[in-house]
């Protein structure tokens, strides 16, 4: 369960002069679902591409374990890169040959109703996501990298998609790394949340820990100096304060209404959505 699949050390990567990832380190383990969040341009997709081997590091290292060979890394890009003129059948055949796959399970395709003779460029974004997922799952991946695709899926397909990811984790102990902006649908699913900021992870924690450690206080009065405030936001005459790290004794000491914060809201605060940061996390 805790075997490290990939160890990233001091990763540096950029396009021309702009450095997108700057000294990032992380370790990904088998059987965990890690969600990467961050503002647009924070380097989430760049990191996924680096893990998939599409982008190569300018510095630092990405050490893959013997189980994370290129054949065992499935990558679903938000670009849905595949040869557009090909039919689904041809793409599957090619993929199986290239990755040495013996048998291909087309269950997902059938459930969504994707015909084999359909050309890739005729598929909708959601259908492409399912085709890519089917291809990636056929590799029996130990690491499944899913860029920001969940938001393009309709509720039915999204359930299928997420279900397949959960199955991959449960049955094959695959590590799943997804990039997400919308958390309402997967609030309870990830084992780990990683928030990218300035080319590295500002947050790397389990969601429960995040939720437990952060509470919200809303009021007109200024917050007592003793309370550790991480973010604040003004909403008319009321102010909203994010207390971090929260401890239960604070309720008794200050008599304030410490409210729970949704994961999406926490991440929104971290990526700067109208919040003023009081100190570094």
């Amino acid at each position: 369960m805790n075997q490290s699949l990939i160890e990233v050390h001091d990763l540096r990567l950029g396009y021309t002069r702009k450095r997108v990832i700057d000294g990032l380190s992380v370790s990904l383990r088998r059987g965990e679902w890690a969600v990467i969040a961050g503002r647009n341009g924070a380097g989430k997709s760049t990191l996924l591409r680096a893990l998939a081997g599409v982008l190569l590091a300018d510095g630092g290292s990405i050490l893959r374990s013997a189980e994370a060979t290129p054949e065992k890394i499935g990558f679903i890009s938000d670009r849905f890169s595949l040869f557009e003129d090909w039919t689904v059948t041809r793409a599957i055949g090619f993929h199986c040959r290239a990755f040495g796959i013996g048998s291909f399970d087309d269950g997902l395709l059938r459930r969504v109703g994707i015909a084999g003779k359909t050309r890739i460029h005729d598929l909708s974004a959601g259908e492409r996501a399912i085709v890519h997922l089917s291809l990636a799952l056929a590799q029996r991946p130990s690491l499944l990298l899913v860029d920001e695709v969940l938001h393009v899926l309709d509720p039915f397909v999204r359930d299928l998609f997420v279900g397949a990811l959960i199955e991959a984790i449960a049955v094959r102990q695959a590590a799943v790394v997804t990039v997400n902006h919308v958390f309402s649908e997967i609030e309870r699913l990830p084992d780990r949340v990683l928030v990218m900021e300035a080319g590295r992870f500002a947050v790397d924690a389990p969601p429960d820990e995040l939720r437990a450690g952060m509470k919200k206080v809303i009021g007109r009065e200024p917050l007592p100096q003793a309370l550790p405030c991480l973010f604040s936001r003004a909403d008319g005459e009321y102010k909203e304060y994010f207390i971090h790290p929260f401890q239960e004794e604070m309720r008794r000491e200050h008599g304030l209404d410490f409210q729970d914060v949704a994961l999406g809201e926490i991440i929104k605060a971290f990526i700067g959505g109208g919040y003023e940061r009081k100190r570094m996390a």
Binding site: V54, P70, E71, S81, L82, F83, F99
Partner: peptide
């Protein structure tokens, strides 16, 4: 042709 068919990224994920 790979570039025209938007397959470059996919090409680089192949195990070669």
């Amino acid at each position: 042709m790979d570039s025209k068919q938007k397959g470059m990224e996919y090409l680089l994920t192949l195990p070669y």
